[in-house]
């Protein structure tokens, strides 16, 4: 079976400093893959290359066999890659529903239309997406008023508007309460399974990573040093030395597994 996403030899350097050096991996449809590593290891750079925000110096990124390197973010999105940001990026002057409507208008290529009231466009479709992420009750609220967790869910709804085949989530649960984290990741997982969508996410909360990822990759100094199931990665002494430490900071059940 061909992979949904096939990344080969990705390299990026800034004024001589290598941020990412030769990263290769693949991701299957329906798979949830976590990318972890110390700060400054190159996770964000990797992410920004995947959605076209940064152009790699070398390497290839293929989505269902199609080369994506060199495309701007908006084209990458049209090819079916959705994205959420570490710091939520939403349209603060609009209501929750309008945020989704803009994405839908763009998806249906209607944004250059000068006729008609955009607030009436794709209303049901927007409400369906909001229902999916549990935000339908807040559709009329100004987006600028939302609590942080709700903003994250809205961002997910916006990212899903183009029926993505691949969803990129940059620290999706940062700044959320543990219960909200679990809910958001369960929701994401359910959508991924249902729509056969691949998910790649970065995360610092090891409880989230070990609980929700099908597989985990560890990035250090721009290189992948491990890839495997959560159990394998957790027990990897090299990963423990560089990144995980003594395991004082995640749930006991995960720590015990690591020690076994």
């Amino acid at each position: 079976m061909n992979a949904l996403l096939e990344v080969k030899g990705l390299v990026k350097s800034y004024s001589g400093v290598h941020a990412v050096r030769g990263v290769s991996f693949s991701l299957q449809a329906g798979e949830i893959l976590a990318l972890i590593g110390p700060n400054g290891a190159g996770k964000s750079t990797c992410f920004n290359m995947l959605n076209g925000q940064i152009r790699p110096n070398a390497g290839s990124i293929r989505l269902n066999g199609e080369e994506m390197v060199g495309l701007p973010p908006r084209t990458v999105w049209r090819r079916g890659v959705g994205r959420t940001f570490q710091i939520t990026a939403t349209f603060s002057s609009m209501t929750v529903r309008e945020n989704v409507q803009v994405a839908l208008l763009s998806y249906h290529r209607r944004l250059w239309s000068v006729l008609g009231y955009a607030g009436a466009a794709h209303r049901e479709e927007a409400d369906d997406l909001l229902t999916l992420v549990g935000m339908d009750q807040q559709a009329e609220r100004p987006c600028g008023e939302l609590a942080y967790g709700d903003l994250k869910r809205l961002e997910l709804a916006v990212a899903l508007a183009n029926q993505p085949r691949l969803l990129l989530m940059d620290e999706p649960t940062a700044g959320m309460a543990p219960k909200e984290r679990v809910e958001l990741m369960r929701l994401t997982a359910a959508i991924a399974r249902k729509k056969d969508m691949g998910v790649l996410f970065t995360e610092h909360d090891m409880d989230v990573v070990f609980e929700h990822a099908d597989a985990v990759m560890v990035l250090n100094r721009g290189e992948l040093i491990a890839r495997g199931s959560p159990q394998e990665v957790r027990r990897d002494p090299h990963v423990q030395a560089i990144y995980l430490g003594e395991g004082l900071l995640y749930d006991a059940k995960h720590r015990e597994e690591a020690v076994q």
């Binding site: 590593g37 110390p38 700060n39 620290e171 940062a174 700044g175 610092h204 090891m206 560089i242 990144y243 995980l244 430490g245 003594e246 395991g247 004082l248 900071l249 995640y250």
Partner: peptide, 11 residues
Amino acid sequence: PSEGLAPKIVE
């Protein structure tokens, strides 16, 4: 002080 840091750094 621990937000966004690797577990090892947090230690």
